[in-house]
């Protein structure tokens, strides 16, 4: 028993002593393996350890608003704007982008093949009553999906073919794969997802499907000044040359998952 307590202390002690930043990040950047690839470069350069909380954008922003994270990395323009307006964030910078895609089974029950317009695609899904898997978890992807339905003038809630699973991107893809459903996914999670079965990419290229990742520095006061300073260093580094190059160089099976690109968002 004492031996295990000793192990526990060893496992936690190193982490507790080093300077750390808690980064609440949208799941796609973490689950795709990107953060695990690039963050060690930051730690090597600065000695600051980064602890990643992989949460949907809604949850990540709520965690930060409660003061339980030092920096956020998210991808929902509307929720971000509300977060900034509420005074929780002080600086927002875009650090990477890619796109969302609609994926569905090869048999294509919704007849999406060849479409480039996401709103037209959702009309087809509804017309053909093709199973549609919704995250339903207030993540950035979920928020975009809800916006697209609104633009299509369709309220799918309660329809027999519309399944709100209340889960992460991986969970939604697992359900879509198992039930021949259509779902909206970010490209990073899709390319790193290992259980596609019959799912294929069906709709892409709509400007509405752009997926922009932003790092938000938090308003001072909640966290000790030292942690805020470390979080600031991480935010600057993510927008800097080393991180941008590492983001662009990150590939799975020869495919780039994220495009670097820095833009200040007022």
């Amino acid at each position: 028993m004492r031996a295990f307590l000793a192990i526990l202390l060893l496992l936690t002690a190193g982490v507790a002593r080093a300077e750390t930043v808690v980064l609440a990040s949208t799941t796609s950047l973490d689950n795709s393996g990107l953060l695990a690839r690039i963050l060690p470069l930051f730690t090597a350069r600065t000695g600051i350890a980064v602890q990643v909380l992989a949460q949907g954008t809604g949850q990540a922003l709520a965690t930060a608003a409660r003061g339980d994270a030092d920096l956020v990395l998210v991808h929902d323009p509307e929720a971000e704007a509300a977060f900034m307006a509420a005074g929780h964030g002080v600086k927002r910078v875009e650090i990477a982008w890619n796109d969302f895609i609609l994926v569905g089974p090869k048999s294509d029950p919704a007849r999406l093949g060849g479409l480039a317009d996401a709103v037209v695609a959702l009309h087809k899904v509804a017309e053909n009553k093709a199973p549609f898997i919704s995250r339903g978890d207030k993540s950035g992807t979920d928020a975009l999906e809800k916006r697209l339905w609104r633009e299509a003038g369709i309220n799918p809630a309660g329809a027999s073919w519309y399944k709100d699973i209340g889960g992460g991107m991986g969970a939604a893809l697992n359900v879509a794969a198992a039930t021949d459903g259509v779902t909206l996914t970010d490209r990073g999670t899709w390319l790193s997802f290992a259980n596609r079965r019959d799912l294929v990419e069906q709709v892409h290229g709509d400007p509405r499907l752009l997926n922009r990742y932003r790092v938000i520095e938090l308003a001072p006061g909640r966290q000790p000044a030292g942690r805020m300073a470390a979080a600031h260093k991480l935010a600057e580094w993510l927008a800097g040359a080393e991180a941008q190059a590492a983001i662009g160089a990150f590939t799975i099976g020869g495919m780039a998952l994220f495009n670097p690109g820095v833009k200040d968002i007022p």
Binding site: N31, G167, G168, G170, A171, F193, A194, N195
Partner: peptide, 9 residues
Amino acid sequence: TLETGKGNF
């Protein structure tokens, strides 16, 4: 839980 979500069964 995490790896199931990634499809890494």
